[in-house]
Design a protein around this nucleic acid. Structure first.
Lengths: 196, 196, 196, 196
DNA sequence: AATGAATGAGCATTCATTCAT
DNA sequence: CATGAATGAATGCTCATTCAT
């Protein structure tokens, strides 16, 4: 599955598609989803027509950007999960997802505003990541590293929230690290609770 | 200060202004900042002309909505801070601000996207709240209830992030409470650290 | 019924609406339905926004133009039918409809291409005119002035066809008159048939 | 004259040209001249590039379609004229032209809208048919079967108009026949006139 | 002061035509 | 020669803002 369509797509077409995705990611992230399509095309170094040949709708472009980010995240999450043991993998993936999600919040809102719910093409990678995160959560909880009462929804909400906090904080690494300390400490089981 | 212009503003004008603010708050919060001004006017039961007489710009209306929310928050924060002692006041205000901020995130982004930085009229109430929050933070830190290494920026970022997490979580109180538990526990000083 | 909406519409708004209809009629008739909306607005002396305030769609404008022509035609047809006796009224209305329909053919095609069938607002005046024409036809047939085997569809088709012929012929009255002679003579009952 | 360029055109090129003409005839007739060129190419089973190699312009394609139809009509008209005597030939050709012209009206309008007048390449076959029709008309008039006062322009206008009437009427043969009866009877000389 | 009609710059999208593969 | 990706001018429509009533 994945990119296996009928024809293999011409070299230049593939390059333009990639350029458009890169440009859109960059522009949407830094300047918001309100930027004119024409500007995205210009940033990618192609004409508007090309943009609309590859993505029939501005919304479709937005979606494709998100799908790609989600897929990348899925791959990296999977790799991290394989490399380390449950508790470490859990926290490493938490960091990864938070950092990869920065600037993506607006996308989701824009998409949600457009269609009734999240689009079909987003569903698959979303589910894949969520499944992996659910496994990491349970693993870390079994290992006693994370409070057992937390469910997947709270975990995902914490990811989104931490990402939002980072957006507000800027690039300076020290304050960012302090935010992670707060959240990670908060995730650990309470002494009294587990000890009793 | 505030609305002290030359004339005291006619009664019906004041009522229209209030209606517009209410309508804008409602509409922006539930349907986003992209809603046409005309619709806000209709919701308020006035014509567009009236809207633009009171707020010279859509952005100005957005700003006024935020100012009002911030002012309300300042008042309620002040009351809370007076009623209880530092550590309790700190956590109570944290809850208050988080709950009052839900749905407001998009506003801030829209405003930030428009002007270079936060606008002048927002500066005053923002400063007031921040000042109060800063006091609460230092008070709680002195009382040993909050990690001493946290600065105001991290605190504000945590507020924004927690609010974001709540937006994602919906209205069910139990998961929301678990989020608060995580963040509040994370805010407390580490055993080892304080023991030294 | 008819134009009786809630409010009576401001004077300038009514004038602009009329101007737009006039301009659209003129421009669509002489240069086809492909002309940009902007040009119609310019011809009417208003901005595009005004055009779209009055007619939410280019197609809606097209429709309104046709409705007005049909309504005018209904009125004039009714007047003619009242002034004269069946056979004369029939032929007089035939001429009238043919002359009023010139240039209108393309409209109908454009509308038909857009929606599946003729739009709701066109239905009423269309039905009114068709009803009147049906009455005229039967009246003329009873008076023995028109071949009895002709149905309403053939009659309407002949109207459209004669109008088309006139479009091709230009303004010179003599050839036009000869076309009418051919069609009118052809409409009369055959000797043999009526003699029986 | 005609298609006599330098090279005789490769076999596959000729086949593509024919396919394109067929596809264009089909598509223009059934769905109007507004259909994108790409779709015509797809229908023909070739790429757009090929279309534009054979016909430098969409308009040129339109023209070529009409030329071919006119040429076919010229051939069939000639054959009919040879097979029968003046009056019968006249009416047979009238039927033929009317039936062949259905759906073609829009083409002519589109072409007329584009250039100032009918294009050069259309001139030759148009003249040929018109000459033949003129001969048929005079022949039928000499034989006393058609009103002598009718000129070629009126005749052509009647052809166009009858064709338009048929378009409106649909495929049911009985009403169509009644239209022909009306027009043919109308074309015959008036008793009183000829009796004098 | 309130109203809502008018305005027009701005945007997403289409499509005839060109050109690299 | 064929292909179909690339192009960008053109178009219908929206919406913040102005202004006549």
């Amino acid at each position: 599955m994945g990119g296996a369509q009928g024809r293999p797509m011409r070299a230049d077409a593939a390059r333009n598609r990639a350029r458009l995705l890169d440009a859109a990611t960059e522009v949407f992230t830094t300047r918001g989803v309100g930027v004119p399509t024409e500007e995205i095309a210009r940033t990618a170094g192609v004409g508007v027509g090309t943009l609309f040949r590859h993505f029939p709708t501005k919304e479709a472009l937005l979606e494709a950007v998100m799908v790609r980010r989600l897929e990348e995240m899925a791959v990296r999450t999977a790799r991290l999960a394989d490399e380390s043991e449950p508790p470490e993998a859990f926290f490493a993936c938490f960091r990864l997802v938070v950092e990869q999600s920065e600037g993506k919040n607006e996308f989701a809102q824009a998409l949600a505003a457009a269609g009734v719910d999240v689009h079909a093409s987003l569903h698959e990678p979303t589910m894949e990541i969520q499944g992996r995160l659910a496994d990491l959560l349970t693993g870390a909880q079994r290992a006693g590293a994370v409070r057992p009462e937390l469910g997947l929804p709270e975990f995902l909400a914490l990811l989104a929230g931490t990402s939002r906090a980072m957006e507000q904080l800027g690039a300076d690494p020290e304050p960012r690290e302090r935010i992670f300390q707060v959240v990670f400490d908060g995730l650990r089981p309470r002494r009294g609770t587990s000890a009793k």
